[in-house]
Computed example of a mutant assay.
Amino acid sequence: MANVCEVCGKGEQSGFNVSHSHLKTKRSWKPNIQRVKAVVSGQVKRVNTCTRCLRSGKIQRAI
């Protein structure tokens, strides 16, 4: 599954784990993407959306 929200475009972010001795190793943070049925321009479609968009009501779920 793609790690990109189709509503807001949120995707994977990268950064570093930083130890106490200040050694750095690469790591990534992935958004919580859910595949849901939603109403898009009057039709029911399956979309990949982040839980933040679902919770804030940016997308209307289909029943």
Rank of each mutant, 00 (worst) to 15 (best):
residue 2 A to C: 11
residue 2 A to E: 14
residue 3 N to V: 01
residue 3 N to D: 11
residue 4 V to I: 15
residue 4 V to Y: 05
residue 4 V to C: 04
residue 5 C to L: 04
residue 6 E to F: 06
residue 8 C to Y: 03
residue 8 C to N: 05
residue 9 G to K: 04
residue 9 G to V: 02
residue 9 G to F: 04
residue 10 K to F: 09
residue 11 G to D: 11
residue 11 G to T: 13
residue 11 G to C: 05
residue 11 G to W: 06
residue 12 E to L: 12
residue 12 E to V: 15
residue 12 E to P: 00
residue 12 E to M: 14
residue 13 Q to L: 13
residue 15 G to I: 01
residue 15 G to E: 07
residue 15 G to R: 01
residue 15 G to M: 05
residue 16 F to C: 06
residue 16 F to R: 03
residue 16 F to Q: 09
residue 16 F to N: 15
residue 17 N to D: 10
residue 17 N to A: 07
residue 18 V to Y: 01
residue 18 V to K: 02
residue 19 S to G: 14
residue 19 S to Q: 02
residue 19 S to V: 02
residue 20 H to I: 00
residue 20 H to K: 08
residue 20 H to L: 05
residue 21 S to G: 04
residue 21 S to D: 15
residue 21 S to R: 08
residue 21 S to F: 00
residue 21 S to C: 06
residue 22 H to M: 09
residue 22 H to R: 08
residue 22 H to P: 00
residue 23 L to Y: 04
residue 23 L to K: 10
residue 23 L to V: 01
residue 24 K to C: 10
residue 24 K to N: 10
residue 24 K to W: 01
residue 24 K to Q: 15
residue 25 T to D: 04
residue 26 K to F: 11
residue 26 K to Q: 12
residue 26 K to C: 06
residue 28 S to V: 13
residue 28 S to Q: 10
residue 28 S to R: 10
residue 29 W to I: 01
residue 29 W to C: 03
residue 30 K to V: 14
residue 30 K to P: 00
residue 31 P to K: 11
residue 31 P to H: 08
residue 32 N to R: 13
residue 33 I to E: 03
residue 33 I to G: 01
residue 35 R to Q: 09
residue 36 V to L: 10
residue 36 V to Y: 06
residue 37 K to W: 05
residue 37 K to Q: 13
residue 37 K to E: 11
residue 37 K to D: 09
residue 38 A to H: 04
residue 38 A to Y: 02
residue 39 V to H: 03
residue 39 V to E: 06
residue 40 V to P: 00
residue 40 V to S: 06
residue 40 V to D: 03
residue 41 S to K: 15
residue 42 G to L: 12
residue 43 Q to E: 15
residue 44 V to I: 15
residue 45 K to P: 00
residue 45 K to N: 01
residue 45 K to W: 00
residue 46 R to A: 08
residue 46 R to D: 09
residue 47 V to C: 11
residue 47 V to R: 14
residue 47 V to F: 10
residue 47 V to L: 15
residue 48 N to I: 01
residue 48 N to P: 05
residue 48 N to Q: 10
residue 48 N to E: 13
residue 49 T to S: 05
residue 49 T to N: 01
residue 50 C to W: 01
residue 50 C to L: 04
residue 51 T to Q: 14
residue 52 R to K: 14
residue 53 C to E: 02
residue 53 C to H: 06
residue 54 L to P: 06
residue 54 L to G: 02
residue 54 L to C: 11
residue 54 L to R: 03
residue 55 R to T: 07
residue 55 R to C: 03
residue 55 R to Q: 12
residue 56 S to V: 09
residue 56 S to L: 08
residue 56 S to H: 07
residue 57 G to L: 07
residue 57 G to S: 07
residue 57 G to R: 05
residue 58 K to E: 12
residue 58 K to G: 12
residue 59 I to R: 00
residue 60 Q to G: 02
residue 61 R to Q: 15
residue 61 R to Y: 04
residue 63 I to F: 11
residue 63 I to S: 14
